[in-house]
């Protein structure tokens, strides 16, 4: 009897799926579930089944019945919604639409693609480099020798050198994507226009605006006549494209050993609209893009003649840009894989 029930289920389901219209569906329903339908008749024979097996068979029969009913119901629904029948029947079209089950790209990815696009429009190509990096490219080539106090502002995560030929302290997790200045420039002659998106690592206590892993987009260009006004103009162009025409910026002087003059870019905090909040440390402004004219020592280390060419460099705090863009008040939201967050993007 079990086999019989399974056969009924299989043939009913396949017939329902193939049914071209509602009329036929009604017929199929009768054929199986009607008073003299196949399932009904089969069930009448349950008395022939030994008593101890009856409850098992009963369960199976119920399941078969439910499956057939469910399949019927679904098929009714699809047939009803077929556009050809929509007009004929009185369907309530104000009910919500049925959304396709597509996923969501991470907000970081979405903003990163925009960043890459904006820079492409002004001739910058994207490069990708190692996260496990040498002290040389992370510091020395950027005019930050050993014992330089600027190293304190970029607390480094050092990799365990045991069982290797590497000297302690020589290989680190990069603290900045600026490492790629040295790597790219030593391989090509100017003009160069490069951006380097990537993850950086620092020994940093985590809070709403700091993390020990964060994303940056480094950028630099070198040519025969690159000027400070070009840097200001490029920053404004890029941030207007990314944050809207009426974005508020200000530039300040700062010091990074690999640039001179050094520039820092602040964007009005989008979370508090400049009023001051915990994310912007009550200042109303958020540091977004440290930058400057590339220091002659960096150009020299790359084999460039600093009297003939000049350049600028900048680093966009991508994680911070994303949070400001979507008014997220905590950087940690970006590494939280909660679908309730991701589905908003």
């Amino acid at each position: 009897m079990e086999e019989e029930l399974m056969q009924i289920k299989n043939s009913a389901v396949s017939m329902i799926i193939d049914a071209p219209n509602q009329k036929e569906l009604e017929e199929i329903k009768l054929q199986f579930l009607g008073r003299s339908g196949k399932l009904t008749l089969t069930l009448k024979e349950i008395t022939k089944v030994p008593v101890e097996k009856r409850s098992e068979i009963g369960k199976l029969a119920n399941e078969v019945k439910r499956t057939i009913e469910k399949t019927l119901e679904e098929k009714y629904f699809t047939l009803k919604l077929k556009f050809s029948s929509l007009r004929k029947q009185n369907v309530d079209t104000t009910a919500p639409g049925i959304k396709p089950a597509i996923g969501h790209l991470h907000p970081m990815t979405q903003v990163l693609y925009e960043v890459v696009d904006v820079f492409k429009s002004i001739g910058f190509q994207a490069a990708d480099g190692p996260e496990i990096e040498t002290d040389y490219y992370n510091f020395e080539a950027l005019n930050i020798p050993k014992d330089h106090p600027a190293r304190d502002t970029q607390m480094t995560l050092y990799l365990d050198t045991r069982n290797s030929k590497v000297n302690p302290g020589e290989i680190i997790l990069r603290t900045q994507t600026s490492t790629m200045q040295g790597r790219v420039m030593e391989k090509v002659k100017p003009p160069v226009r490069v951006i380097v998106p990537g993850k950086n690592f620092r020994y940093e206590q985590v809070d709403s605006s700091h993390g020990f892993e964060f994303w940056q987009v480094e950028g630099f260009m070198v040519d025969t006549n690159v000027k400070l006004t070009d840097l200001f103009g490029t920053i404004e162009y890029v941030l207007q494209k990314l944050m809207g025409k009426d974005v508020k910026l200000k530039f300040t002087t700062t010091n990074f050993p690999f640039v001179e003059p050094g520039v820092d870019t602040y964007i009005q905090c989008s979370i508090c609209k400049g009023k001051g909040c915990s994310f912007c440390k009550q200042s109303g402004w958020s540091e977004i893009m440290p930058a400057g004219m590339i220091h002659p020592n960096v150009l020299k280390a790359a084999g460039y003649d600093s009297q003939r060419v000049s350049g600028f460099a900048f680093a966009i705090g991508l994680s911070r840009l994303v949070t400001l863009r979507y008014q997220m008040n905590d950087l940690r939201l970006l590494t939280n894989p909660d679908l309730r967050i991701l589905e908003q993007f």
């Binding site: 002004i122 001739g123 990708d128 160069v192 226009r193 690159v226 070009d230 103009g233 162009y237």
Partner: peptide, 16 residues
């Protein structure tokens, strides 16, 4: 504020 002039490099960069 100005935008850089000069030739846009067309060769594929290292680490592209």
């Amino acid at each position: 504020k100005t935008l850089p002039n000069g030739i846009i490099p067309t060769n594929e960069i290292p680490y592209f």
